[in-house]
Amino acid sequence: MSTKMPSRLVRLLAGLALFGVSVALMVRADLGLASWDVLHQGVADRTGLPMGLVVNGVALLVLLLWIPLRQRPGVGTVANVALVGVALDATLAVLPPLEPLAGRIGLLVAGVVLNGLATALYLGARLGPGPRDGLMTGLAARGLLLGPARTGIEVTVLAVGWLLGGALGPGTLLYAIAIGPIVAWFVPRLAAPSPAATPTGATSPCPA
């Protein structure tokens, strides 16, 4: 095992746990969620299941779609399926809803920033993408343009989630606009050195 593997595992586990926490913050803000989380919340509301359990269940179903796309999961992919929903439900259990709008806005902003940091951590571990990201890259590998493939999936899950009662609002727009630049800022600062890194420790900022 590489001497850097423990450090990469720490990045991965911390990133996945913080990702679940960040989603919980946005849920408690009640000002709108990211597209996949609109779907997760809608399914949870309709079924009565804990939202974290729905997150893990949807991730598992998406992972099954990798089979015809011939995508291979990594350690990070499997850990994503298992851990994000657990962290989400644990945070919701200890974080009560807020009434003041200022507090909810604060939770929303904190959730979006933390989500970007968490994403950079688990992608920077270079141990495999999450199921949803792998679905998009798998479709791209089969000839679909990545941009349209991602947009089509995001719009579809957002629409279905909204129809099921998921929270669509200004937070959804804020997340869509801000998450890319936030992740791009964090990735080069948090990514683990790639296997091709030079002896001096130089590495590419691109995630796995």
Rank of each mutant, 00 (worst) to 15 (best):
Ala141Thr: 02
Val81Ser: 06
Val183Gln: 04
Ala29Pro: 04
Val94Gln: 14
Pro97Ser: 09
Leu65Lys: 08
Tyr175Arg: 01
Asp45Pro: 01
Lys4Tyr: 10
Val62Asn: 12
Leu63Gly: 01
Ala34Leu: 03
Gly169Met: 01
Arg132Thr: 15
Ala176Lys: 07
Phe19Tyr: 11
Asp45Ser: 13
Thr200Ala: 14
Val78Pro: 01
Pro68Trp: 06
Pro170Ser: 14
Ala125Asp: 12
Leu65Cys: 11
Val55Thr: 14
Leu139Ala: 14
Gly166Thr: 07
Val54Trp: 06
Ala59Leu: 10
Val54Gln: 15
Leu98Glu: 15
Ser194Lys: 09
Ser2Asp: 15
Leu114Cys: 14
Arg28Pro: 05
Leu63Tyr: 09
Val27Tyr: 07
Ala140Pro: 05
Ser2Tyr: 03
Arg11Val: 08
Leu123Lys: 04
Glu99Cys: 04
Leu158Lys: 10
Val43Trp: 00
Phe19Arg: 02
Asn56Thr: 08
Ala93Thr: 12
Leu92Lys: 08
Gly106Phe: 05
Ile67Thr: 11
Thr198Cys: 14
Pro96Cys: 08
Val78Asp: 07
Arg142Ile: 04
Pro96His: 07
Asp37Phe: 00
Cys206Trp: 13
Val58His: 05
Pro96Trp: 04
Gly32Tyr: 03
Thr156Pro: 02
Val27Asn: 06
Ala34Phe: 00
Pro181Ala: 08
Met136Asn: 13
Ala17Leu: 08
Leu144Met: 10
Gly128Trp: 00
Ala178Trp: 01
